[in-house]
Design a protein around this nucleic acid. Structure first.
Length: 321
DNA sequence: AGCCAATCCCGCCATG
DNA sequence: GGCATGGCGGGATTGG
C-alpha cells in the first residue's frame, strides 16, 4: 500500500486537489486490496478553497509517513507559503519521499528550493513568472509534466491527471495505469501513449497532428523514417519537424521511440515474449538497440522491469527517472 | 569502450 | 513588412 499525502493550503484549487484523490483512488491492482491510500493534509483544520471551505482531516505530521507528497495548485502565485509547510516538504525530500506538484503548486515547491537546478513546469500562464522569480529553475512551459526522479511537476489542471497516471505507471506498471485511465475520465489516447506530451491546441492555421500520432501508433512495429512521416502528413520533413515540436514538445523520432518503449513495457507485463520478440514487435531493428533505448527512458533493463511487475503485486521503488 | 556511416534535427535563409 | 514553407549545412544522435 502506497501512502499519498495531498497538501491543502489556503486558496487550493479544488480541481487539482481532487485529481490525485480520484486517480489514485481508482487504481485497482489484482491481489492488492488497497494499492493507494490518499490523505489530504493541511496546516489548518479549515482550508479556504473557493467557492467553499474544506475541513481537513489530517495535519502535516502525516507528510513524514507518506511515500508520495502532492502539492495541488493554489489560486494566487504570490501567496506566502507557511514556514511549517516548507519545512515539512524539505524534511520529506531529505528522507527520499517522492514529491509532485500540479499546476501552480510548483510555486510551493519552488519556495522550498528543491527545484533549484532542475527542470520544471507549471500552468502556462504562470511559467514566465516562475522563471523570473526563480532563475535557478529551468522552466519548460511546453510539456505536460516533468519527471526529475524524486521531484515531479506538472502543467495546468488536466496535466495533473497525466502526471498522476505517470506515477501509477511507475508504481504498478503500464497496464494498471492504462486500466486506471479507462476507469477515470481520461480519453484513452491521452494515456496509453500518444498525447503524453501534447500541450497546445494546434494554431488555427496549422494542421492538427493528432491523426498523425494515431497513424504512428498503428505502425509502431514497422521501420519508420522521418521521410515516411512527412509523406504521411503531406509536408516536407522540415515543416513536419516544426509542427511536431510545437504541438508535442518533442521531435518525431524521440516521440516514436518513447511510444515504442511504452508499448514494450506493456508487453513485458502482459506477455511472455522474450526480449527479442518484444524488440521486434515494437519496431526496433535489433535487441541491443532496444535495450539501450529502454534503459535510457525507463532507468532499468527490460528483464528487471518484467521481474518487478510480472511476479507480484508489489509496488516498485520510485527510483526511475 | 570506441569507431563509422546513416539519419535526424534545427538555425539560417531564399522563396512565394 | 509579415508569414509560412522547405532546401541546405552541419552538429548531434543513433545503429551496427
Amino acid at each position: 500500500m502506497i501512502l499519498i499525502a495531498v497538501i491543502a493550503l489556503d486558496g487550493v484549487i479544488p480541481f487539482d486537489l481532487s485529481t490525485p484523490c480520484e486517480v489514485f483512488g481508482r487504481v485497482s491492482v489484482p491481489g492488492t486490496p488497497e494499492p493507494y491510500r490518499v490523505m489530504v493534509c493541511g496546516e489548518k483544520k479549515i482550508v479556504k478553497a473557493e467557492p467553499f471551505d474544506l475541513q481537513v482531516r489530517w495535519d502535516l505530521s502525516h507528510l513524514a509517513r507518506a511515500h508520495t507528497i502532492i502539492v495541488p495548485g493554489i489560486d494566487t502565485t504570490n501567496a506566502k507559503i507557511p514556514e511549517t509547510v516548507i519545512r515539512a516538504i524539505r524534511d520529506a525530500a531529505e528522507a527520499g519521499t517522492r514529491i509532485a506538484s500540479i499546476c501552480t503548486g510548483t510555486f510551493v515547491l519552488a519556495a522550498t528550493g528543491l527545484l533549484d537546478g532542475l527542470d520544471a513546469t507549471t500552468h502556462w500562464a504562470a511559467a514566465a513568472q516562475l522563471a523570473k522569480r526563480y532563475p535557478k529553475i529551468r522552466v519548460d512551459p511546453n510539456v505536460l509534466y516533468v519527471d526529475n526522479g524524486q521531484i515531479l511537476t506538472s502543467a495546468g489542471a488536466a496535466a495533473g491527471i497525466d502526471l498522476c497516471l505517470h506515477m501509477v505507471r511507475q508504481d504498478y506498471g503500464a497496464a494498471v495505469a492504462a486500466q486506471t485511465a479507462r476507469l477515470s475520465v481520461v480519453p484513452l489516447e491521452r494515456t496509453g501513449g500518444q498525447s503524453q506530451f501534447i500541450v497546445q491546441e494546434p494554431a488555427a492555421s496549422s494542421p492538427d497532428i493528432a491523426p498523425l500520432l494515431t497513424w504512428l501508433l498503428e505502425h509502431l512495429s514497422e521501420p519508420i523514417t522521418l521521410e515516411m512521416i512527412a509523406q504521411q502528413s503531406q509536408t516536407s520533413t522540415r515543416t513536419l519537424s516544426r509542427y511536431f515540436k510545437a504541438q508535442t514538445g518533442t521531435t518525431p523520432l524521440q516521440w516514436l521511440l518513447s511510444a515504442r518503449v511504452r508499448r514494450a513495457q506493456e508487453l513485458l507485463e502482459k506477455s511472455n515474449l522474450r526480449a527479442e520478440g518484444i524488440a521486434q514487435s515494437v519496431g526496433f531493428e535489433s535487441v541491443s538497440a532496444f535495450r539501450v533505448c529502454f534503459y535510457r527512458r525507463v532507468g532499468t533493463t527490460p528483464q528487471r522491469y518484467r521481474q518487478h511487475f510480472a511476479s507480484s503485486g508489489e509496488p516498485r521503488a520510485f527510483s526511475i527517472s
